[in-house]
Design a protein around this nucleic acid. Structure first.
Lengths: 356, 356
DNA sequence: CTCTGTCATGTTAACGTAAACTTCTGTGCG
DNA sequence: CGCACAGAAGTTTACGTTAACATGACAGAG
């Protein structure tokens, strides 16, 4: 280094008081104030044992006085790790997503990892790809994808090398590490429950076609009916919203032989209940309704909703566990599907069909 | 573990093909392959103009071949910025929080910022303090706090110096930069609506005491009644959950003179509807109910809920705007409260009181 | 009294990137 | 023909931290 005369932008003059040029306090500053080397500050900062008590106290005092905070960028650079997991998702609006994300965040925090959210407004391929590109530039050790993975597959998306991935809500267990609720089992239980009550068959309001969860619930609904040798009515298509459930309910209310409906989520079930109420079709006396998710409100619908309980917290927990195992063992991929079990919660929206 | 035979973690030999020792590709690697200096790679990476076409192509080809991704830790270290905003929050479970967070994430992404979530399981002081400590160590340029700020004030918490803060749901506008829904106005509108319909007074089911939003809705409810010269019934205390609303509803169903209830959120209103239904009190013929939030499901309750619409997206947008202004202008604090307006959505759960 | 070992602390170097500066090449003009 | 100048690319250095090594002091053993 030549001369400092010019460099106002450089690091700022030394002793000029009040001239707060420097943004952040570094170890060097603490070290100077405490009269030790910056390495000693580092040792104190990281709780190494080999610092004598009096020195430690001095350093801590200096830290406090200057308001020292370690610079995580420098740390990350040094260690090659960020202690952060990225989460790519479409929307937090659905109960399932937000609860899963919350569980992921909680469990990750317990392991010393933070969560970085990358929302994708509209799940087109371009946007998802963009999210991954951004993710690649982001300070992230691994990624959890809560979005339809086929949007990635279809394109020429290559996941950033060296980034570990776990996927939620997907059938891509052959290529990725997938964690998911046991959608098929849930749908099966819902249908069985209704058949066991004596219903001849069960109608279905699906989720959006873009959702694997929705697709699988529909497949399992169909399969359960076929296995029981029952006729399979045409499915009505919803989009998870109570509004779409309501629309479907208005249609179903006009079908006299419809005595049992399985909605692919609780919100659509709410719409169904509303529609049946409007049309004077009593639930459960005339029509039974089963939902999926078991949102906290489901027990307070009119009538309280029989539904399939999903353990979102467990999904989040397993995502974190998988992703951390990948990070720690240094493996890039570890395909396979991890299914989280469900259970049916029977409330008051289901009953035997009306006798005639 | 002092011997290299084991340590694949080190840096790995140079030309050994296939032996992917090195975790990440650096500019130096790209530079070597492209036969240029790493500075040239940097220039290409950042789109500087002063690189001739052929060289640029070579570098890009090398980047592609090696799967180069810039190391954001090094970048952040260099620039002193992370392009990341931290969000401290209690829970994503409530509609309001998750939608606010989503809006924050979306708008931040549009500005090139990512969101890091720091969940606080139980909002004790210690935990919040811990979250802030963690945040201080985190790669974050600013923080948005969606949690009761008094949990911070009461303790000896000093916000990390140099970190910009915006707070949601708080009355701490004198000390912090606060963005919030106009809770008072919303509550006032709800009460006015019911009084205008002819109700003598309005009962209230509150949110949890720890919530400023809840407190302010309750205050404004009381004030609106007093301004109108009406008696103020004792408030019933809820905790945002439909279950607590249900419990309150069972109590209110037993009060014959109760003809109008304002619930501090929609979920508790759902519980109220359920309780009134159980007890055979017709809504709105005998009792009117107003909620707060206007969750998407509210229009499909039985009956569809009259409620105060909150613009969560706008709250998120303003948070991001404020926080970015702070970052860009380099100001640490900028106290003041920014209120987002609300509107009353009248549906079918309100009507004039029964004539007697 | 010297030698060895231990413990507290200091010094050096490296992580990957990019600003600032330096060097090199070729072009146009007097 | 030489010189100034512009443009392209290379070199140096610093960002803040910490592992690895170096230093120095002091204690106990021979």
């Amino acid at each position: 280094m030549d001369q400092g005369a010019v460099g106002g932008a450089q690091r700022g003059g030394s002793g000029i008081p009040g001239g707060r040029r420097k943004q952040r306090v570094s170890m060097a500053d603490v070290a100077k104030l405490a009269g030790v080397s910056s390495q000693t500050v580092s040792r104190v900062s990281n709780g190494h044992a080999s610092v004598i008590g009096s020195t430690r106290e001095q350093v801590l005092a200096a830290m406090r006085e200057l308001g020292y905070r370690p610079n995580s960028a420098a740390r990350a650079l040094r260690y090659g790790q960020f202690n952060t997991i990225g989460v790519i998702l479409f929307s937090l609006a659905s109960t399932g997503n937000s609860r899963t994300v919350e569980a992921i965040a909680t469990h990750a925090a317990a392991e010393g990892y933070a969560i970085t959210l990358i929302p994708v407004d509209i799940p087109t391929q371009d946007n998802v790809l963009g999210a991954f590109t951004r993710m690649g530039e982001l300070a992230v050790d691994a990624v959890i994808v809560i979005i339809e993975i086929h949007l990635l597959d279809a394109g020429t998306v290559t996941l950033p090398p060296g980034v570990h991935v776990v996927v939620v809500d997907s059938d891509a267990g052959d290529r990725y590490s997938v964690v998911d609720t046991d959608q098929a089992d849930g749908a099966r239980r819902a249908v069985r429950h209704l058949l066991d009550l004596g219903h001849h068959t069960v109608w279905h309001v699906t989720g959006p076609q873009s959702s694997y969860a929705g697709q699988r619930r529909a497949q399992a609904w169909r399969a359960a009916l076929e296995d029981a040798g029952r006729p399979v009515p045409a499915a009505l298509h919803g989009d998870w919203s109570s509004e779409s459930g309501h629309a479907a309910g208005l249609v179903l209310a006009g079908e006299p032989e419809c005595t049992a409906v399985f909605a692919a989520n609780d919100q659509m079930a709410l719409g169904l209940l509303r529609a049946f109420h409007e049309r004077g079709r009593a639930v459960p006396a005339e029509v039974s309704v089963v939902g999926f998710d078991d949102i906290p409100d489901a027990g307070f619908f009119i009538p309280p909703l029989t539904t399939v309980h999903q353990d979102f917290a467990e999904v989040g927990r397993r995502c974190v566990r998988r992703v951390l195992r990948q990070i720690r063992e240094g493996q890039v991929a570890e395909p396979g599907t991890d299914l989280v079990p469900v259970r049916l919660v029977v409330r008051e929206s289901t009953a035997p069909p009306p006798t005639r």
